[in-house]
Design a protein around this nucleic acid. Structure first.
Lengths: 132, 132
DNA sequence: TAATATTTGTTATAATATAACACTATGTAA
DNA sequence: TTACATAGTGTTATATTATAACAAATATTA
């Protein structure tokens, strides 16, 4: 299975930081955090991020230029991601909704295009931020 | 209606460039194009882009950091966008699919979040690129 | 062991985006 | 008409996000 492949040192360091965070992290904030572990340059971080995205261990939140760990241990859902984003507190959660996924997975347009993946981002206010 | 408001000079210049392009344009490529019209600085472009996005005249393709005109003249669909993106030729099209929109518009999670908008990007190969 | 591919470390730089500030235009209300 | 508020402008400087290029090290495979 693709995402069980062995990670290199830098990839492990970067993944570790992201997995410990409940919220998406930005590349340069990751860089700051891993400097004490011997990673000195942006490119070292970006290379690890690229690989981790590729194998589905993390996802990029495109609208935020940030990266979040994929909690779904058994999956390769690099290719089909859905997120909810609170525009007030910036809380981000990955959504796993079977019905929604099925709907999107089977979506066909009338242009003859062949889709291999999608990314959906919902924006709004989370429960907490509605109250306040 | 929000997007019938009068545009300023810079907003018109920027919108004009984007509307003339069938494909998404990047901010600095727009800047290059509008220099002959007296717009000299990135910020002038970004401010116009922000406003045009806000009133729904254009949309941002988040995964590409690029901007495309909204063809749907009567709409305010700033809040609900769906795109198809060919990963080979980078052709981008806005998708208007009633069934899909309805499905997404009414999507509710179980976290009590209140959604006000969404952005969905499909990736794959267009008809042309499949052939080649 | 050689050949190949992948990852690393490094420096430099490209590409994308915003802060801050003084000024100008436009609309609205007294 | 003046005063005020609001939005937009022009400008310089700078912040943030991301990649190019190259040499060295490591792992894989034949």
């Amino acid at each position: 299975m693709q995402n069980q492949q062995v990670l290199t040192k830098n990839q492990k360091i970067v993944l570790d930081i992201i997995e410990k965070s409940s919220q998406p992290l930005k590349a340069y904030s990751i860089l700051f955090d891993v400097k004490k572990k011997g990673i000195n340059a942006p490119l070292q971080v970006y290379r690890a991020l690229d690989k981790l995205v590729e194998i589905g261990k993390i996802h990029k939140i495109e609208s935020r230029n940030a990266f979040i760990a994929c909690k779904n241990s058994k999956c390769q859902i690099t290719k089909a991601t859905v997120f909810s984003i609170c525009e007030n507190c910036e809380d981000v959660k990955e959504i796993h909704d079977h019905k929604l996924s099925e709907h999107l997975k089977h979506y066909k347009d009338n242009k003859g295009m062949k889709y291999s993946k999608y990314n959906l981002e919902f924006f709004g206010l989370c429960k907490n931020c509605i109250k306040n």
